[in-house]
Structures are given as C-alpha cells and as structure tokens.
Design a binder for these strands. Structure first.
Length: 258
DNA sequence: ATGGCAGATGTTATCTGA
C-alpha cells in the first residue's frame, strides 16, 4: 500500500499537476496541505473521477488539508487539533483509512522569528505533541504526515548556516521535533536513508530546484505498530520539475500488508 | 545582504509562504 503526502500550494491552481501525479503514481492514500480554497471551491468531481474518496478541511485563501483514499471512504475522526478553541486555521485532519489512523497536518511556518507567528508555531507544535502522545498510547497503527515546516538536522538543509535563525530550523523548532520523535515515532525517510541528502521542498527563487538548493520539511512519522511494515519510501522529486509545480514535491511510503 | 517567485484576493497592490 502506497501512502503519499503533498503540499500542493493551491489545490485549484495545481489541479492539472495533481491529477497527473495521481495518475502516474497511483497512491492508495493521499494527504494534501495548503489547499488555499474554501469548501465551495473544492474540485470534488475531478478527484472522484480520478478514483478517490475524500475528506476536506479548507478555509478561504490559506491553509487547508485533505485526505484521499482509493479503496474506501476515509472515516473522519477529527478536523481540529485539540488544545486551542480559538485556533481557526485549517491545519489538521485525521481519519481512519484501511485500518490505519492517518493524521494529515500543516504545521505553521513561524516566520518571522522571534515574534507572534513563531510563538504560534511552537504552541501548535506543543498541541501536536500532546495529541501524538494520546495516539501513541492507543497502540494503534498511526501515521502523522504532512508539511512539518521543520528541517530536523543539518543534513536536511542545503546551507545550514544560512538557516539557523529561521523559524524552520531554529534550535527551539528542532528541539520540538526531537521531543515528538522521542515518544517513539519513526521518521520513515531517515530510517531507510540515514545518511542521504533528501529534500522535499525547493524555493521558486533563483533556480533552487535546478541547483538542488532544497529543504526536507515534509515528513512521515510512524507509530511502532508500523515499523515492521515499512517496505520503502521516497520523494517524487520529478514532480517539482513539471510546469506550474508546487514548491514542494510529494513524499511517499510503501507499507506491507498486515 | 538582498531579493528573487508564486497563489489568492481583488487591485492597480497586499498578504503569505519557507
């Protein structure tokens, strides 16, 4: 079973790229971030025609997350990350699909740092960590995937020294990611490729993709129940080279059947 | 060190992203 995550950076502007990628790689489950579309503008018909059932959590202009599944309708568990009733950003959606719990997340960027946006990022990270602890305690097979807006280590940044003060790479941000991992989550890409330079994002500026000046910020975290089922993982970086691409590339894992 | 690009909203630009 192939599960993928993709920050599409506008689901409607990106629709031709999204549909081509779905057709060429045929993931069974898809998590999307940055839909940038309200509910009335979801491309429902195009996604159904591509063979997917979907649940969506959008909002006007910004954010927005979705989960697609080929085999069965995702059963929504929540579309709110617990812990702050005043947080109205659509950054989390969670569902049961194929006996897996899938959490699809879009962690705040946090720039400029320091400042209120960075504070929001760290608070959001704390809420995610609390929720992740509950999921971990359940013992169920859980996948927390999406755009974490974190480069976990220097290996994940093309020029680490230029990013030390950035919200995506500051010590507080990396520490928050390590604290989450310490609950027992496995970073799927790093488990299979501990020393490779692997990126999931390339800036639109200055031919960043052509120079491979990238970042690894989209991640798959697996609960222990899934460790033995992880067969392979990778980044569809070729998609980043297509016309009208997102600045992110899709990331995927393959799980063995139970 | 700076500014470069792209999407959405809805204007003759602003905000956000990473």
């Amino acid at each position: 079973m192939r599960i993928a995550t993709y920050n599409v950076n506008g689901v409607n502007g990106r629709l031709p790229v999204l549909l081509r990628w779905l057709k060429e790689t045929a993931p069974d489950i898809v998590c999307l971030q940055e839909l940038k579309a309200p509910e009335e503008k979801y491309p429902l018909q195009a996604i159904e025609d591509a063979g997917y059932h979907a649940i969506w959590h959008g909002q006007k202009s910004w954010n927005g997350v979705a989960i697609f599944s080929r085999n069965e309708q995702p059963i929504e568990i929540t579309r709110v990350l617990p812990g702050d009733p005043e947080d109205l950003h659509s950054r989390y959606i969670e569902a049961t699909v194929n006996d897996l719990i899938i959490g699809c997340l879009y962690l705040p960027n946090g720039n400029p740092a320091p400042g209120p946006k960075f504070d929001y990022k760290l608070r959001w990270f704390e809420r995610l960590t609390l929720h992740a602890a509950d999921l971990m305690a359940s013992g169920k097979p859980v996948i927390l995937t999406g755009d974490y807006n974190v480069m976990p280590t220097e290996l994940d940044v093309y020029k680490p020294e230029r990013w030390v003060d950035d919200a995506l790479f500051r010590p507080e941000t990396r520490a928050a990611f390590q604290k989450l991992l310490a609950q027992g989550w496995t970073d799927a890409i790093r488990k299979l490729y501990p020393h490779e330079v692997i990126y999931t994002f390339w800036d639109y500026f200055r031919d960043a993709y052509g120079r491979n000046a990238g970042l690894r910020i989209d991640h798959f975290l697996l609960s222990p129940a899934l460790n033995k089922r992880l067969r392979s993982a990778g980044v569809d970086s070729f998609v980043r080279g297509w016309e009208k691409s997102s600045d992110h590339a899709p990331v995927w894992i393959e799980l063995d059947d139970k």
